[in-house]
Design a protein around this nucleic acid. Sequence first.
DNA 1: GAGTTTGAAACT
DNA 2: CAGTTTCAAACTC
Length: 740
Amino acid sequence: MENEENKKSIIAFSSSTSPQSISAFNDSPIFNYINNLSPIKPVKGSSVTQVFPGLNSPPLVFTSPRTHTRRLDLKSSQSHASSDAELSLRDNTCNITTGGNLTPLSLKNSQDVYPKMTDLMTPDGSLETNVMAPAAVVEQTEQDHEGSLPSHPEPAKNDGKVISTTQQYAERVAKHQQPVFGCYKDYGKGIASGIANQPTATVIGQQLKVGKSQLGKRRRLQFEAAQERVVESNPVTQNPSITTANSEVIDSSISQNIKNTSQTVSKPSGIGLHLNSIVNARPLASVRIKPNDGKKSISITSHVQDNMQCPSISSNSNLPDELSTRREEYTHEAAYSNDKQIMMIENQESFDQGSLNYEQGQRVDEFNRSNPKKKRKKGESNGDGCKRCKCKKSKCLKLYCDCFAAGIYCSGSCSCQGCFNKPEHQDTVLETRKQIESRNPLAFAPKIVQHLTQPPNSETMADEDQVTPLAAIHKKGCNCKKSMCLKKYCECYQANVGCSDGCRCEGCQNIFGVKGASSIMFRERGTEAVNEKLNDSFDDKLKVGSIRSRSSLPAIHKPYNMTPETPSFQFSNHGKDALKSHVIPGRYISSPESECTFYPEMIPFDQEFMDEFSPSNSSRSQLLPSNGRSLSSLGFRGSSLVTPVTLFGGTKTSSRITDDDDDTPKILRDSCIQPNKVIGTSPNKKRISPPRIRLHELGSTSLKSGRKFILKSVPSFPPMTPCINSKDVTGHTFGGDNTR
DNA sequence: GAGTTTGAAACT
DNA sequence: CAGTTTCAAACTC
């Protein structure tokens, strides 16, 4: 009975979008409770990036107005979560979509959002995610954690070991399989496989811990899908495959000291993987390990990109005030604060090194912030961080236009003239886009592709501190003649990637790598040079500063270049799994032991699922136990969406360390390559991370038990062209709607 | 803020 | 595919 009631409540809340229902909700004890938890004051309005409906190509913004609706169905599904594979699949889809689409920052106006994106979420149209739903559910869960949550398949057992201090709670929740935060829950495979429970439990435990320690944050999490995802992004939390031991370790480490934790979600970038999206890119996230009173603390910081915001933001009338408020808050935070500290985990072991990069990053950020001029130029973004164009003749219907190229509509912040890149001209936009794509199928595809490179010194890599280098290159290459690839005129430089043999540049001096030279060598040089410069001073030599700012975070800059926004986790295995240099859609694997640079991407779906269905999912970050088993469900993934093709088109099932085993057509692979992935790499290929941080260290047991977490990069970028259905230009583009 | 430089995109 | 033109961002003053 109780379960039924719960379900009803949840559903009712979820489904209700009417003012009355909202009002009712606001008056509910739960809501009050929530309000009491957070000091944050409600603000109205939320932002949503306007994206071209029906664009398959680069997933730009994942937000969709509909995301906020139909939550009922989702909820219902979840609460009724069954082992049904189909259901799981749908959930998974939903989740994926949610993860990508719910970028907090981008959600503002549902009506501006491309309709199709919303649809993407649910194959049958019933599973759209609703940001609110999670919160409601959470509340329900909390209030009722003792009791009866929806009937789910019996959750996996924790072997009697629970994960943390909040273990009890977690377990209870886990049993009910209630999504604590947002959409991540145990979507997809996890559910189907029935293994989702454990992870869920872990996640919940962690979240709870965090939440309890920081009510305000917790509240945000509840209301902010994105934030939820941040939490979800925690590798430990989402992966069903995470064993109890692992969970325990991680959890314990987390529980030990969650302080100063500001959980925020990375700002969504409305820009896809196109080079444009990379411009002005900043580190999305970084992991820092630093000593803290004798304890090792790991802080994961997501760096929000100023420019990744969508130009068009409007208020979302569908959201309750509270939600809107949260969104607003988030938006502001994201807009004005590039660095989002997502989580801090403290461990009791001593810290040795590894904070350098982070510190540098901090310095860089500070530098950026302290240099308005630079910042302004750099992003040419408006106050809210949205990129804006100034097209005068192209009508914003050509690739000249950053907005168009990025797949987003121009907004009021743009100073373009005769702009057609607006929702009201959707047809024109789509048509033009089609036209361009017909000319060049990959016109909207990411220009930056990553490739993993074998660590310079494999022996060195034995060191756990090593991070597998992940290099990125401009697919097409630049053609610079005068800038020597040292200015943003150069697309390679702009993307913080080195020039490659594909470049036709003259006098290349790209600090990220010179054409024709060993990328690693050059990158190292570049990084070192950058670092040196950083050490010199931040205030003088803007030029240098410019370079520094972009490259200053050796470990980080790469990642952010490529990724627009989604946070993802990455653990390096020190190159043990290093790939040979090649373009990879995302087979990046690194070990947890080394640093983790990551984007707080949260994709709630099970990685294994992805593995099985996606040929090109490689870029997605994924935690894998050393034994090769996927720790999926960590929910880390690129901001980008996973197109249906990406998710289901493939047949590959396992090891995808190299492209060799990838059946994905080259075109798909290329297009799917994600710039977004996290690259836990330092430009110089040296260990970036807080070197000594190893998961096993985090929790004394986990690693000792022989398990390692390997972060696998997952492609967040959906295949563009290949995935495009000539007919289905309509929408479902970014989310994976194509899967249907 | 205006003007210049630059290189990608578009065109031929 | 190469050459030219167009375009808007990056940059300079």
